[in-house]
């Protein structure tokens, strides 16, 4: 800082050459910093990606370990269709995720309206507890619900218990995304519709819903994914007979034979692939990144 001040106070004493040197120096430093910043950023992306790419790579090799390298194969993939347990666990997880995300979305959208359109006494409390299921550690939510279902309610651990658990877990994601959208929603539009004689339902259908629909979709997607990838909550409430995909996968990890790991590598790769496609589609269709980053309102108000 001191040198820069010097520069300012005594520029006249410098020859053009010296000044040019300084300028180049400054520019190089600026560029270096720039490179440093983007370099670090790129390294971070690498950190996020390398382990996933390792799985993808290993899914095409004979051995589940890098070394000794035993050649490439597609055999790990040919095993996937024959795994009955795997298929039923995928179906189970789809069912649980879809039902629970639907419930979470329905309740979450209503609650978002309550939070943004009404002033009521326990509003802050309501909002806080609406977010708690996302923050509370999964082990504790799982243990709490397990005891509750087991000792207090006639709900045995199983499909229904898991759907209920995940519907609660998905609620905050819907709530956060939809309230964020509603806060920036121009309520005078609704008022105008009402002034023109539309009842609340019609107003909602024709004015409000089209605007917040992408946010609802994003909320549903989030709740769905959270349910689909959850292991720990389901572990406590799903019982022995209901096996979501995560439990199938966890079983393969704890029984880490070469055979199991090979199969797991190919299944994991398929998961990454499916999500990559779904995400690309979602990003091209709707403004997913905006909802995730909380910037949606700036991009597409009006």
């Amino acid at each position: 800082m001191a040198t820069e001040t010097d520069e300012r106070t005594e520029p006249a004493e410098r020859t053009d050459e010296e000044f040019g040197d300084r300028l180049i120096d400054w520019r190089t430093r600026e560029q270096l910093l720039q490179v440093g910043l983007y370099g670090t950023a790129a390294l971070m992306l690498l950190f996020l990606w390398v382990p996933l790419l390792v799985i993808v790579f290993l899914s095409f090799t004979e051995s589940p370990n890098l070394l000794p390298f035993e050649g490439f194969t597609l055999y790990n993939y040919t095993r996937v269709p024959g795994e009955a347990d795997l298929q039923s666990s995928v179906v189970t997880s789809f069912g649980i995720a879809t039902l629970s995300a639907t419930i979470a979305t329905a309740i979450g959208v209503l609650a978002s309206f309550a939070l943004t359109r009404y002033r009521f006494r326990f509003r802050e409390l309501y909002r806080t507890f609406g977010i708690v299921p996302m923050i509370i550690p999964g082990v504790i939510l799982g243990v709490g619900l397990r005891f509750y279902f087991q000792f207090l309610l006639p709900v045995e651990p199983g499909f229904l218990a898991t759907v209920l658990t995940h519907s609660l877990y998905g609620l905050p994601f819907v709530l956060l995304i939809v309230t964020a959208r509603l806060y920036t929603f121009d309520e005078s539009l609704e008022e105008a519709a009402r002034d023109l004689g539309a009842d609340p339902l019609t107003t909602f259908r024709d004015v409000t819903f089209p605007v917040i629909a992408p946010a609802i979709a994003a909320g549903f997607l989030f709740a769905w994914v959270r349910s689909f990838e959850d292991y720990i909550r389901a572990l406590f409430v799903s019982g022995v007979e209901v096996t979501p995909l995560t439990q199938w996968m966890f079983g393969k990890i704890t029984k880490a034979s070469a055979e199991n790991l090979n199969l797991l590598n190919s299944v994991s790769t398929l998961v990454v692939l499916v999500i990559a496609i779904a995400l690309a589609a979602a990003m091209n269709y709707g403004n997913v990144s905006g909802y995730v980053a909380g910037t949606a309102h700036e991009d597409e108000e009006e």
């Binding site: 589940p64 990838e229 797991l264 998961v271 995400l279 997913v288 990144s289 995730v292």
Partner: peptide, 25 residues
């Protein structure tokens, strides 16, 4: 858009898969 895609994809990838990937590492 590309960067957010690259960030979001691991984010949406199952938690278990990501933990497992470090087990291999």
């Amino acid at each position: 858009k590309v960067t957010i895609y690259l960030v979001l994809l691991p984010f949406f990838t199952m938690y278990l898969v990501r933990a497992y990937s470090w087990r291999l590492m």
